[in-house]
Structure formats: C-alpha cells, structure tokens
Amino acid sequence: MAATGEPILRVRDLVKHFPLRHGPLRAQVGLIKAVDGVSFDLGRGETLGVVGESGCGKSTLARLLLGLERPTSGSVTVGGGEITRARGGELKRLRRNIQMIMQDPYASLNPRMTVGDIVGEPYEIHRDAVPKGDRRRRVRELLEIVGLNPDHADRYPHQFSGGQRRRVGIARGLALQPEIIVCDEPVSSLDVSIRAQIVNLLGRLQDELGLSYVFIAHDLSVVRHISDRVGVMYLGKLVELGGDGEIYGHPAHPYTQALLSAVPVPDPEGRERRRRIILQGDPPSPITPPSGCRFRTRCWKARDVCAEREPPLRALSGTGHAGACHFAEPREAPPPA
C-alpha cells in the first residue's frame, strides 16, 4: 500500500546514548552510541523496513519509537503528538496509537496467563478503550482476526505452537486498535514454512485495518517482500533510505551493496559466477565508532576524506532515495534473491 498525505510517524535527529559504566562505583567511562541521528517519515498505510546487523541500533530505535526509552535528543511524533516529550495521560494516549509486536513469544507471553487474558491485558491499562462488558467478545474477535480459534482463549501459551504464539502476540498488539505497529524481528527463529504464514497474516491485516508498519528485521528477503521503503542501518545511523526497488535493485551505499551480496540466494543456478563482496572483520564498537564515515574501516572505497568528514544522508534522486556516502553511486544489484 502506498503512502498518502501527512506522515503518521515523524522521526527527527533521534539520538540515544547509553552511559557505559565500569568499576565498583559505576563510574561512567564512555557512551554507547546506540542510535546516533536518525530521521525518517512513515506514511499512512506504508511499510518501512529497517535492516541492519546486530548492534546497529535497530532494536533501540524500536523502543524509542514506542516511548519505552527516552531519547538523548531528537523527536518522535506520532499522529501529531510528540511521544518523546509527552508525560502521564498524554503519553498513554499517544502510545495507544503505536504498538509493538515482539521478537520472542516465549519471553513476551506470560506463561501463567491464559491467551485470552494476554490479548486483553492492554484493556487493563487503557480502561476506557473497550467497555468492560465487551472485552471478552473483543478478545474473541481479535483471536479470530489473527487466525486462531476463539474457543482457545482459555488455553495457556505452552499449548500453542511457535507460529500460533506469534499470532497471540500480534492479536495483543492489535487490541488497542493502533494505526502504527512496530514489528521487531516478527518472524525470526520461525521455521520457513511457518514464517510465510505470519508474513501473509501481517500483509492481510495491513490491507484490512489500514495499518502502518515499521518492520525491523535482519532477513532481507522478508523485508523486501513486505516493505514499500527500506532503511539500512549501520552503527546507529541510517546509511541508506529508499524505495524497495531502489535499495534492492540499485543500492548506492557500499554497505548496502555488501549486505545484499552476502545474502545467499536460494537458487544454485549460476552460483559459481555470483560475485560477492565479502567484508573483512566485524562492525566496530558503538562505543568508539570510527571518525568520519563509520563504515570506512570496512569499506573498499574509503579515501582520506572518509575519515575526516562524516557523509550526511543526502538525496540521490528526486524519488526520496538517499545515501550517506561521499562516493555513493547506484549500482546494479546482485541477482535478485
């Protein structure tokens, strides 16, 4: 679904630094720059995929979007209200509109609660959302929407399979009828055959309920399938942002190019001829990121200027494709995954 009109979510210069403490007195010895200047808009009904490797800051970004974490600086505006500054009742009201689907259903579903109570739990906090007498009916509806049997509302999480538990988590995320859902690795650790069921469910819910998604995942083929636009994160920064065709078809940032070329293609045909950019080493620490461009220590295009000046995220075309590289140039992508 394409974006229309005013953005429903607006993120500006978002920064989150965690203090790094050490020793018996917990003295602050440094800063972990988990998110370090991220800006983007999310349109109504749009899906923005966010990809990046572990430690790039994508999960911290999710927590900031939901107001679960206060940013060091910058702002997150949800449907007109600034969630990063809101307190009390105002924060509660804004949060109702942006909900999260968690990665690990084992950790995020209380094993002692029935599935019906888990799905209806948001109503205990937002008491005015649904009148008390209607809650049971509403929970049954939610279970049905996500493809679970409403008669199983009295069962416990362990009585469900991994894929079904994901559905429970999705139903809970929908309980307050949010317009925005932040999905943090919603299909990781699921078997391939189950993963497709959940991806289809998320697509169907978007069509039926007009949801906007921020879809955070490391699985690049799933992100491509579901996203309208994709942002690529590296060490706390967005290094490239663009339409899915631009990112996957003509990636401009060397990191995006390397990331895409590293994804194994599920087709052995022509594998001997495939060219692959193998990056050396691991990402540097977010405590002491490299000066200038953060990717320069692993980049084959790096020159002196890359250590001196940090490349801003600049427009590469009139269509909103942007890259943060002094030498960004759209390149033909490796064969499609």
Binding site: G162, D191, A196, Q197, V199, S221, R224
Partner: peptide, 24 residues
C-alpha cells in the same frame, strides 16, 4: 516443494506467499 514456494522472491512482491499450512 512447499518450502521452496514459501520463500519470498523478488518477483512476488505484494502477493501472498505460498505457505505450508499447519505446523510440524
């Protein structure tokens, strides 16, 4: 066959994936 069809592919954007129904 079901496994191979359930992988998202470049050409199939916007369409539902062919999932293997049920669970293990």
């Amino acid at each position: 066959k079901g496994l191979l069809e359930s992988i998202p592919r470049a050409g199939g954007k916007g369409r539902a994936l062919r999932a293997v129904e049920g669970s293990s």
